[in-house]
């Protein structure tokens, strides 16, 4: 069992927790993820590491309440425990030799892009961060991004906070004005990563995307997290858990990844409805 050392509600749908897992805390690097199971009989879900406190042995996770499992996790409080917490998994984000980068984060993906921006910043790179949210209420980690970035641009879909529009708008402006980046790192919904890649393409700037497919074991055993890369040598199958989660944005088949991400949408919907009915009963 793994104890929840702290819990913080970041916004109505996003929660931050620190989990006591000293072995994972010691090892985890930006870009890596963990797999957890809330309870016996629960589902295994991957979540990206949002930071670590090595001295205290804590691993920070930030999650959006989207399905039955994240809902259940959100019901847990400080001092409670979760059944399983294993990692770190995946390859860390490659930060070597990059002097000027643009980190693009969307929604809860900002929880993953923040430690990446921080990592680049700590390594001495010039960091531009562009982060986008649906509306003002969903903004997270603004202060942290402020500290980790040389320039921070915040967007909201509905214009309720800072600039209105999605993250590709300022990215395109920067690129058009002749801004050169060694790399653009996009982390967020698959559709956002797809359009960041398309936006950057005419300018020939390398784009790295962090894929977050459905997983079970996360160690390279089940193949559930596979995705297709369109490379010079043709189509290549890769496993996000051992080959990723970071991939060259120009190679990823985003449409297939989006379709695979929806595989259990129906099941999730039913599971959520089932748990909702349970709540109603308890209220009575």
């Amino acid at each position: 069992m793994f104890r929840i050392a702290s819990k913080k509600i970041l916004n109505p749908t996003v929660t931050q927790m620190e989990i006591e897992a000293p072995l994972v805390a010691k090892k985890a690097k930006p870009g890596q993820f963990i797999i957890l199971r809330v309870n016996e009989g629960g589902e295994r879900i991957p979540l990206t590491v949002a930071g670590c406190d090595v001295a205290k042995g804590l691993v920070k996770i930030i999650f959006q309440i989207v399905g039955a499992t994240t809902g259940k996790l959100n019901e847990k409080n400080e001092g409670d425990s979760i059944q399983d917490f294993v990692g770190p998994l995946g390859k860390p984000t490659d930060m070597e030799g990059k002097k000027k980068v643009c980190v693009v984060g969307g929604g809860v993906g900002c929880a993953i892009s923040m430690p990446v921006a921080q990592g680049f910043h700590d390594a001495g790179a010039n960091v531009t961060s562009i982060i986008g949210f649906r509306n003002k209420d969903l903004v997270i980690l603004e202060e942290e991004f402020e500290k980790a970035s040389d320039r921070l641009i915040i967007m909201s879909d509905d214009g309720s906070y800072k600039r209105q529009g999605n993250v590709t708008v300022p990215l395109k402006e920067l690129l058009e004005s002749g801004e050169k980046f060694d790399e653009i790192i996009a982390i967020g919904p698959v559709i956002m990563m797809k359009f960041v890649t398309l936006t950057a393409k005419p300018y020939g700037i390398p784009v790295t995307v962090s894929m977050n497919p459905i997983m079970i074991d996360g160690t390279g055993m089940c193949g559930c997290c596979r995705l297709t890369l369109n490379t010079d040598k043709g189509k290549v199958m890769k496993f996000a858990c051992v080959d990723g989660p970071d991939f060259n944005g120009y190679e990823v088949d985003f449409d297939e990844a989006m379709s695979r991400g929806r595989m259990y949408a129906d099941f999730e919907k039913k599971a959520r409805e089932a748990s909702c009915n349970l709540f109603k009963k308890e209220v009575k």
Partner: peptide, 18 residues
């Protein structure tokens, strides 16, 4: 370890499992 696939078209479709 890693499951093998056949490298035929359509292996990324929903409903294909190792």
């Amino acid at each position: 370890g890693l499951p093998n696939f056949m490298n035929i078209p359509g292996e990324g479709l929903n409903g294909v499992f190792s």
